[in-house]
Structures are given as structure tokens and as C-alpha cells.
């Protein structure tokens, strides 16, 4: 067996995982992509273990460990995603922009606070932590309100509505 084969397969899998992590919007898809990358590594480990004929089987043992850790990671990751969803009502990565610089008076970059901007209260809210609450509420109203709410709300909120609407 040429070692190049598993190595190349693993490299391709890893790159695909990178693409998935970078390009996918849904957090669960990103988690899947992370799994892909982990598996690429595992493949490498197994292949090189075979190649080096390790008496301690360190490569395969490590693969097992990686699998276990991956299981734990997925469990934790999903727990985080669920907590996120409970708080933000969304798991779309590009809507989770609390890391962005706080929007200034002229900030066009406050699209992540689109719901807050919609109601006009979140921006003046003294505690940015509370933004989540009116946002969730606002999304409720938007979902319920239908057409005019969507016309009002630009940004992510509107997209979310559109996505739901596109569901058959």
C-alpha cells in the first residue's frame, strides 16, 4: 500500500472540512465539518501507524482517543448550540456578531442587531446583555406580523423570515 493514498485522501478530507467550517452558515453543519477534519486526522494516524509498524500501536490508540474526544466534543458543541438557540433563536453563525465592534452612531455594521434596530429600543438600551430578550421578542412579532414586519426589518431578521417562508 502506498502511503500517499491515505495521506492524499486525508488531505482532501481536511480541506473539505476547512471549506465547510468557513463556508457553512448553520452551526450544526460547521460541527459536521469539524468532524470531517477530525476524521482526516484519524485516517492519517491509522495509515502512518500501519506504515511505521508501531509495536505499541500508538497511532491506532490515538485514533480511538480522538474518536472518544470527538464524541465528547460533539456533545458539548451541541449543548452550546442548543443554549445559543434558546437565547438567540438562531444558530446561524453570521448572525451571531456580538463580537463585532459596538455600533456607533453612524455604524452601518450593526446589522447583527437588526431586530434591535427594528424596535429602536435595543440601541439605546443601557445594558447590551439584554439585547437578546427584545430581539427574541421582536422576532416573534415579526414572524407573527407577516408582511409589514418584514418590510420594516432589514438584515438578518428579515432573512430568517424569508427562510422560514421558503420552507414548503
Amino acid at each position: 500500500m502506498h502511503i500517499v493514498y491515505p495521506a492524499v485522501v486525508s488531505a482532501l478530507l481536511f480541506s473539505i472540512g476547512v471549506y465547510g467550517v468557513l463556508a457553512r452558515r448553520n452551526t450544526i453543519l460547521v460541527l459536521m465539518s469539524v468532524e470531517l477534519m477530525l476524521n482526516a486526522v484519524s485516517l492519517n494516524l491509522v495509515a502512518f501507524d500501519v506504515w511505521l509498524a508501531d509495536r505499541l500501536h500508538s497511532g491506532q490508540v490515538l485514533t480511538l482517543f480522538v474518536i472518544v474526544i470527538a464524541a465528547a466534543e460533539v456533545g458539548l458543541g451541541l449543548a452550546i448550540v442548543l443554549a445559543l438557540y434558546r437565547n438567540r433563536r438562531t444558530v446561524d453563525l453570521d448572525h451571531l456578531r456580538a463580537l463585532a465592534e459596538p455600533a456607533t452612531a453612524t455604524g452601518p455594521e450593526q446589522e447583527d442587531l437588526g431586530a434591535g434596530g427594528l424596535t429602536g429600543t435595543a440601541r439605546e438600551s443601557p445594558q447590551p446583555v439584554n439585547v437578546a430578550v427584545p430581539q427574541g421578542a421582536a422576532e416573534e412579532r415579526r414572524t407573527a406580523g407577516g408582511g409589514e414586519a418584514q418590510a420594516e426589518g432589514g438584515g438578518g431578521g428579515g432573512q430568517a423570515v424569508r427562510r422560514e417562508r421558503g420552507t414548503p
Binding site: L22, L93, D94, E101, E109
Partner: peptide, 17 residues
């Protein structure tokens, strides 16, 4: 520079990679 600091984690990771 602030334009890059838009909170999109994926963009950050892209830059990092």
C-alpha cells in the same frame, strides 16, 4: 480596519487560516 471587525467568526477564521 473596522470593516473587518464585523463579528463574523468565519471571516476571522478564514483570515487566520
Amino acid at each position: 480596519l473596522r470593516l473587518a471587525q464585523n463579528g463574523n467568526v468565519q471571516l476571522y477564521v478564514s483570515g487566520l487560516l
